[in-house]
Amino acid sequence: MLDVGTEQDVESPQPAGCKGKIDFLFVISRDQVMAEGQAKLVAAFPDFVETIETKFAEFDYHIMVVDADNHWGWPTCTAQCPELEGLCGTMDYPCDHAPSACDGDMGAGTIFNAGLNAPNKPCELASGRRYIEKGQPELVETFTCLAQVGTSGYNRLGDAVAAAVSSAMTESGACNEGFLRDDALLMVTIIGPPDQDSLGKPKEWAQALLDAKHGDADSVVMFRICDATCPVYDAACTLTKYYFPYHHIESLNVPAFGPAFDVATDLVETACSAFIPG
């Protein structure tokens, strides 16, 4: 006779939520008004890393940072190379670095941030790619190097999100090859002032994310640090709040960003519990 009781005799055919994989994408403004915000951001990096390592200790994660413009370094200093003067000289601007195409491409993972309030040195990534893989030595230091994008650029946050996950950036041989995985949840953290500089529209950026995740809005968690009122002129906040069910918004004016990141990652755990990779 067949067992028709309530207990199952076989394991569920559905894979575990997220299959134990999460891709963290950080998109950070290089606008000059980010000086104070970036100081708080740098202070929060240890908390961000502790949250990832504690909550997702058993997960295979990728961490990629993208800045919000389409050039490398600081044109003011580049024009002075190699005879640096004033501020450019005091920051030891890296005139000897020959930027690659990926260094200046919108949406490419950062590995060498240069300019005002940036490290002005390359970051050491064990993966050999433009993002961190689990097991990266000195994770806090490496993440800080990647995410301290400086204040010598623009604030095209939405454009950068869409570019980072586009097929042009993620296909074989492209700048971000291997970062996005079909069987991983995607968490997008967007940090910066109201996005009034991007050329695209929130609907277009949302579609880029959906295309990257095969149409599944529930496989994306959005976290925006900005003006907490989410004004209509902040296109990146519109993207966060109105297109994806799992989202959290925090103010740039809070004393510290670490607690808000902890709240946002609770949504990752919730989303993972229901996520069934295609």
Score class of each variant (00 low, 15 high):
244 F>Q: 05
29 S>F: 07
105 D>T: 14
32 Q>W: 05
91 M>T: 00
256 A>V: 08
107 G>I: 03
7 E>T: 12
27 V>M: 08
27 V>Q: 01
117 N>A: 05
157 L>D: 01
245 P>D: 07
202 P>L: 02
17 G>S: 12
136 Q>F: 07
141 E>Q: 14
8 Q>E: 10
249 I>N: 11
201 K>A: 08
209 L>N: 04
246 Y>Q: 12
44 A>E: 02
124 E>G: 04
148 Q>E: 15
59 F>H: 10
219 S>C: 09
111 I>A: 04
4 V>I: 13
75 P>H: 05
188 V>W: 02
228 A>R: 12
96 D>R: 06
246 Y>E: 07
240 T>M: 04
26 F>K: 00
62 H>I: 02
138 E>T: 06
6 T>W: 08
58 E>V: 04
121 K>H: 11
201 K>H: 11
222 M>S: 10
63 I>M: 15
226 C>P: 03
197 D>Y: 09
11 E>F: 07
122 P>A: 12
134 K>G: 13
166 S>F: 11
235 A>P: 00
187 M>A: 08
135 G>N: 09
151 T>I: 12
99 P>Y: 01
140 V>F: 04
34 M>F: 06
199 L>N: 09
55 K>D: 14
82 P>C: 04
202 P>F: 02
24 F>W: 09
270 T>D: 11
184 A>S: 15
247 H>T: 13
116 L>A: 12
215 G>H: 06
18 C>S: 08
96 D>F: 00
262 D>Y: 09
161 V>A: 06
115 G>A: 09
153 G>F: 02
150 G>C: 10
100 S>K: 13
107 G>C: 07
239 L>C: 02
48 F>Q: 07
5 G>M: 08
109 G>T: 05
267 L>I: 06
204 E>A: 14
20 G>V: 07
234 D>K: 03
208 A>P: 03
189 T>R: 04
68 A>S: 12
110 T>A: 08
83 E>L: 10
272 C>T: 02
117 N>L: 15
78 T>K: 14
81 C>G: 04
58 E>L: 15
37 G>I: 00
82 P>K: 07
195 D>Y: 03
148 Q>N: 14
244 F>C: 10
223 F>Q: 08
211 D>C: 11
43 A>F: 04
